[in-house]
C-alpha cells in the first residue's frame, strides 16, 4: 500500500482563499503533500519535474479553463484522477466536458469537506488499485514467459 505521506496532490484555483481552505483542511485531516497554484500555467510548468497522484482544479479561471488544464495534466500523468471544482452556473458545461478529459468527479461550490475527502480517498484508491493491477499483469506475463521457457527446456530434454 502506498504511504499517505508520499502522495502528492495538485490543487489549482485562481482564488487564493479557496487554496488556503482546501490546503488547511487536507493538512489537518491527512498527510498528503499538497501543491497549490493560483496559475494553471505555472502549475503545468512545474509538473515536468514534479509527479502528482491526484489533481483538483477550478473550472473558471482567467488564464485557462479547468477542463483544458486537466486535459494537459492528463497528457503528462494519465493515471492521476482529475477532479473539477465548479460554481453553479457552469455545472452543465462541466458535465458535458466530463467525457472529453475523463474526469473522475466534479465537486460543486460551496463544497462539503467530508465529501471532498471521500472523493480524494476513493480517487487515490482507484489509482493504487490500477497500479497494482498493472503490476500483477506484468508479473503474470513474466511467469507465463518463464513457464514457456521451462516448457521448451523440458521438451528439449525429452527429444
Amino acid at each position: 500500500m502506498v504511504q499517505a505521506d508520499s502522495i502528492t496532490i495538485l490543487l489549482v484555483d485562481d482564488e487564493e482563499m479557496v487554496l488556503t481552505s482546501i490546503r488547511s483542511f487536507l493538512a489537518i485531516e491527512t498527510d498528503y503533500h499538497v501543491l497549490a497554484y493560483t496559475s494553471p500555467r505555472r502549475a503545468l510548468a512545474d509538473l515536468d519535474h514534479q509527479p502528482v497522484d491526484l489533481v483538483i482544479s477550478d473550472y473558471l479561471m482567467p488564464e485557462m479553463d479547468g477542463i483544458t488544464f486537466l486535459g494537459k495534466v492528463k497528457e503528462k500523468y494519465p493515471h492521476a484522477p482529475r477532479i473539477l471544482l465548479t460554481g453553479y452556473a457552469d455545472k452543465e458545461n462541466a458535465i458535458k466536458a466530463i467525457n472529453d478529459v475523463g474526469l473522475y468527479q466534479y465537486i460543486e461550490k460551496p463544497w462539503n469537506n467530508d465529501d471532498l475527502h471521500l472523493i480524494i480517498r476513493n480517487g487515490l484508491e482507484k489509482t493504487i488499485l490500477l497500479k497494482r493491477l498493472e503490476e500483477k499483469i506484468r508479473e503474470v506475463e513474466k511467469a507465463q514467459q518463464e513457464l514457456g521457457d521451462v516448457q521448451k527446456q523440458i521438451l528439449r530434454l525429452f527429444q
Binding site: E15, M17, V18, S21, S24, F25, I28, G87, Y88
Partner: peptide, 22 residues
C-alpha cells in the same frame, strides 16, 4: 450576485468546518 458570493461563502464554510475539527 449569487454566483459571486458562492466562492467566498464556500471558503468561509470550509474554514469553519476546519475550525470545528481543530
Amino acid at each position: 450576485i449569487a454566483h459571486e458570493i458562492n466562492t467566498p461563502i464556500g471558503s468561509i464554510n470550509s474554514n469553519n468546518d476546519i475550525l470545528i475539527r481543530s
